[in-house]
Design a binder for these strands. Structure first.
Lengths: 209, 209, 209, 209
DNA sequence: GATGAATGAGATTTCATTCAT
DNA sequence: TATGAATGAAATCTCATTCAT
């Protein structure tokens, strides 16, 4: 009856279910994972799971929520910490790819990608997702503006479109990474990307639009 | 009963099925589309469809094949045509986004994305997909090498990793595009991207990395 | 902790649960109403409800009990009160249709009907129900016998079968009433019924069997 | 491929499913009967049943349809056949209670009653049901008008409300019949009812309104 | 070859009831 | 005694695929 105990208990149980679902969705994909498997993995009963989540889709959604909040907090912390804009850029890229235990997580990227696809058919979520995208966009835009202010980045950069491109580029790397089986030397790929983003590929530093 | 007629007929029928599937997969997604719907849309019988395709997955695969071949041919043609490397870059971006009728097709991007996700669980296809990625990679690598040779691009570019990044960036834009509902001015987004890729974001043209 | 207070409390709680169930069963039907909804509506806990009622079915049964007792008391009172047999007949019909607040209650009729259906599969209850039917039958039989004695009704009436028919006719009206959505002028329907029951439809007053 | 064979086949299969469902719904009730039981009883596969009926509810609806059409045709035939109005009245009552094999079918009445209850929550069907009630009403109204014209029935009868009452009375008998377990001598109950309906219960033939 | 009725395993979800706290 | 989290059997329905005609 003590509410604190009950609440804590609910949190734990919820997390237990989310953990099981995360493992399975990452390993086998959303559609290939059945609720029965989540039941088995989590050790909970079917009814219990439906007491915490309205549906399989809601479970997926909630799982994404948790990941997003974790990732956003990490990104937020790193970007507000000190350091050069360049180093922030590097760390930003890392956040996307490193899981809790600082391991590159291809599975995680795959799930994230699958979520992007599925979320297209989840109307109410879609709104939320767009809001979050804006949040992230704002964060990175600020980082770029700081870089411009500190003269690390070009004066004539449009912070808005640059932020969009940056995000897209990182997303693209995730997609590649998630999609490929061949070993990639992650560090050098990241460095190459940062270098490209910093200096571009053009021969002359002439400014064209 | 001339075999040629029959072959032509088979081709047509096959395309009819693929067209129906394409429309439905794009509109409702792969998992949400049932074979019954494809039967209805295509006007073919169930047996007929299974005469042309081994399974629903095979149908999806074949559909992707057709799209890929079309896109690759377009890319190939554009890149071997004349023009500056910069203009090639611009056109390359366009190819990804423009459907047959030169319309931006968000639906198409979505299906392509869904295919990327699904293909992860389709082992035999996966190989093929990697081979194709290499093909595309080679095409773009060649384009970059030409750009370097013609002194349009920086001398110290690593063609390999630059090609990867380029592809990733474009993929990322697709993902954004497919995932977002808000109107995007496509031309200016593309120009911003090309500009970024060409000149980078760094303030000074000093070469680091 | 005086036992009387506790008993009173139990009665109140019991009624609170019955009220909640009544509202829901009438609004959504027995099968469509879940125990969770009753929990929510009544503001009681699950355990509490199961402390008062053995099962959902028992709850339904008890609810019917309460309604029946109320209705039977009303019928009993009206019939033993003075007045012509004809006026008793009229009032009898009304009792069936008027809820506590003297409003015609279609919902109530519907629930009563649903109960009749469900009770068929509730063996122990069935007995009770038959006993009650007999009780009501007796009440009405007595009323008819009085009517005959007072020369308001035909001498050759068989009180038994006439009572049955009378009940059936009223039940039939309930069924119609419960089942129809169209507005019915209740008073004139009742008067027509009483008139029909009194005088029959035959042209001549000749007595045939 | 011959359509006639296929159509006939479909009809037969459909009827086979309906027969199985009818038996079970009558024996155990709608809610207590599971689709699995219907599968077992009909000898069809689950998929097959869902190929013929959209849902369990649709199956119930269709079953009622079939019964209704049969009953209405019988009623229609009997009423348009010759004979006195009184004999028509008697036969009308019988139709309600006698199944195909001319057996009194309590089970059938129960199912019909349960359908009345369930249909309240089936909106689209509800409309149809009301239309049917009107159809039946019209049929009986005509019968009464003929009785009046032939001077078998009282001149001052209102055909409309009398038809309503008549139907209600029969429905009430069904309800009683369906609801009771005790043996009822059907013939004498019917005769008593017809007699009551013809001559009323009032002592004097004085016409009151 | 073509057809589409039939299959049936398996998916998600519900909900009356129990029982540890 | 009261609570409400947990249970888990059972329900409805889906759908890729097969195969007799």
């Amino acid at each position: 009856m003590a509410p604190k105990v009950t609440l804590e208990h609910r949190e734990n149980t919820r997390d237990r279910i989310l953990d099981a679902a995360e493992t399975l969705f990452q390993r086998r994909g959303y559609h290939e994972t059945s609720m029965d498997e989540i039941v088995r993995k989590s050790g909970m009963s079917k009814g219990a799971i439906y007491g915490y989540f309205e549906s399989k889709e809601d479970l997926f959604r909630s799982l994404h929520d948790r990941s997003y909040v974790q990732a956003f907090e990490s990104a937020s912390a790193l970007l507000t910490a000190g350091g050069s804009s360049r180093s922030k850029l590097e760390r930003l890229v890392d956040i996307y790819f490193l899981s809790k235990d600082n391991e590159l997580s291809r599975e995680r990227c795959r799930m994230s990608l699958e979520f992007s696809v599925e979320s297209l058919r989840m109307q109410p979520l879609h709104r939320q997702q767009e809001w979050r995208d804006k949040q992230l966009h704002g964060l990175i835009k600020t980082m770029i503006e700081e870089g411009v202010r500190d003269a690390e980045f070009r004066k004539d950069l449009d912070a808005d479109s640059t932020a969009s491109l940056l995000i897209a580029t990182i997303d693209g790397l995730i997609l590649r990474w998630a999609t490929t089986d061949s070993k990639i030397d992650w560090k050098s790929a990241r460095d190459a990307m940062v270098s490209l983003v910093l200096h571009g590929i053009a021969a002359s530093p002439s400014r064209s639009g």
